[in-house]
Write a protein that binds this DNA or RNA. Structure first.
Length: 421
RNA sequence: GGAGGGGUAGCGUAAUUGGUAACGCAGCGGUCUUGAAAACCGCCGCCCUAAAGGCUUGCAGGUUCGAGUCCUGUCCCCUCCGCCA
């Protein structure tokens, strides 16, 4: 959520920034609404001040045993006017709130212009793309042959875009999760095991709701929602809290399953592990003072990249252009792994600075040392990494001529010494 | 799911028959001190550029001139019962 004061002060500037994300909003309308709301509110407060004064007078008179019926009658009429004005304020409040909840975050100045993912700016490439002396198989074919992925039966027991992992497949997934969690823990993230379902307010807090309800799986009839990423429970841990400054910065990591309806992705990436309704992910979240978020973001990027370097899987990092960025992000790096079956790099992690966008929605504040007033924190998140896509990349990049998959050195201790699947 | 009890500032507590939310601890700033402690003074929920003012007793309503207090709904916590991995 953007600060209404910012929209009030310089709507053209905010509109200009949002245009970079290719979002068009009429903030003039918002300001008209905001002005009306504040006018009504001011009127209500004047009436309330009058009522408070009169009520005190009633109390004083009654205490002295005097008659107060005249003042009571007068005050009753003031009360009715308050009630009427409040009834006209409620829809204004609601309209303004709903509107503000659907305005995206503004991008930071260094975010490049662009109209599509093709305009993302490559930061660097690491690792050599493997050259095969045989026809490499896509991970879905190889995985089925090896008996570690079972897409057919997943379709039977649940539906499309689900996978059953078996034997070494299940073991490899668990090994990756443990390795990634240890990697995060070594970098001072506190390991958390949160619920996989959250309530409506949490989904609003991180920015999924109310705009993107179609992308979520709801748990009916309980009004809970399956998390699309651990970012939701982790960031909402501190919803509605005022943190003491010495608690910051906060670093959390969590392994969870993630659930996405993938509305609008029909027909895309239908094969393999790339786009699933349920996938495993190790997530990183940081909560920092506003001045620290830019630096924290660079560190988080390294926290994710070093995993691929240790796994020895080739990747590249891109800085997303305005058009390719998400709703709440002020700046985003994507890490993409080399995927032989796609013949290109495929997103495996997204590291984002949300600035104060989520903090304002979720009301996460802190009190700077020595300051009287509270301030909003900055929140950041990043995948480290998406487990399914990592496994797909690993299977494809590490496949051998004989149709097996070598286990990267760093994972061997997590695979009870297994060298090859 | 049923019955009973409870929810007040970071923590712990208070508030006559309904009369407009108080105190302690912790924290922050200051005085004093070589420094610290102690003591003393101020701040110590939120909104508003500020003041005036308004809001705030889990949340949402209702009754009333006025609600922490009375009524209705709802969420959460505790105890017991039931069910259950």
């Amino acid at each position: 959520m953007l600060d209404i004061r910012r929209i009030r002060q310089d709507p053209e500037e905010v509109e200009r920034l949002l245009a970079k994300k290719h979002v068009v909003v009429d903030l003039n309308q918002v300001n008209i609404l905001d002005q009306r709301r504040r006018d009504v509110l001011g009127e209500i407060e004047r009436f309330k001040a009058e009522r408070n004064k009169s009520s005190e007078l009633v109390a004083a008179k009654k205490k002295r045993g005097e008659d107060a019926t005249e003042i009571i009658e007068k005050t009753r009429i003031v009360g009715e006017q308050i009630k009427q004005l409040e009834a006209s304020l409620a829809p204004l409040d609601e309209e303004l709130r709903l509107f503000l909840l659907t305005v995206p975050n503004t991008p930071l100045p260094e975010v490049p212009d662009g109209v599509s993912a093709d305009d993302n700016v490559e930061i660097h490439r690491v690792g050599l793309v493997p050259q095969f002396h045989f026809e490499p198989l896509p991970h879905w074919d190889l995985g089925e042959r090896l008996g570690i992925f079972d897409f057919e039966r997943a379709r039977k027991i649940t539906g499309a875009r689900f996978t059953v992992l078996k034997g070494m497949g299940a073991q490899l997934s668990r090994a990756l999760i443990n390795y990634m969690l240890d990697h995060a823990r070594a970098r001072n993230y506190l390991e958390v095991a949160p619920p996989y379902m959250v309530n409506y307010d949490s989904m609003v807090g991180t920015g999924q709701f109310p705009k993107f309800m179609d992308d979520a799986f709801g748990v009916t009839p309980h009004n809970y929602f399956l998390i699309p990423t651990a970012e939701v429970p982790l960031t909402n841990l501190h919803r509605g809290e005022i943190l003491s400054a010495d608690l910051l910065p906060i670093r959390y990591t969590a392994y969870t399953a993630s659930f996405r309806a993938e509305a609008g992705a029909a027909g895309r990436d239908t094969r393999g592990l790339i786009r699933q309704h349920q996938f495993d992910k190790v997530e990183l979240v940081r909560i920092v003072e506003p001045g620290d978020s830019a630096h924290a973001m660079e560190e988080m990027l390294r926290d994710a990249e070093t995993i691929l370097e240790e796994l020895e899987i080739p990747y590249r990092t891109v800085l997303l252009c305005g058009a390719d960025m998400g709703f709440g992000q002020a700046k985003t790096y994507d890490i993409e792994v080399w995927m032989p079956s796609y013949g290109r790099y495929v997103e495996i992690s997204s590291v984002s600075n949300m600035t104060d966008f989520q903090a304002r929605r979720a009301e996460i504040r802190y009190r700077p040392k020595g300051a009287k007033k509270t301030e909003l924190v900055h929140t950041l998140n990043g995948s480290a990494l998406a487990v399914g896509r990592t496994m797909a990349a690993l299977v494809e990049n590490y496949q051998t001529m004989s149709g097996h998959v070598r286990i990267p050195d760093v994972l061997k201790s997590y695979m009870s010494g297994v060298e090859e699947i």
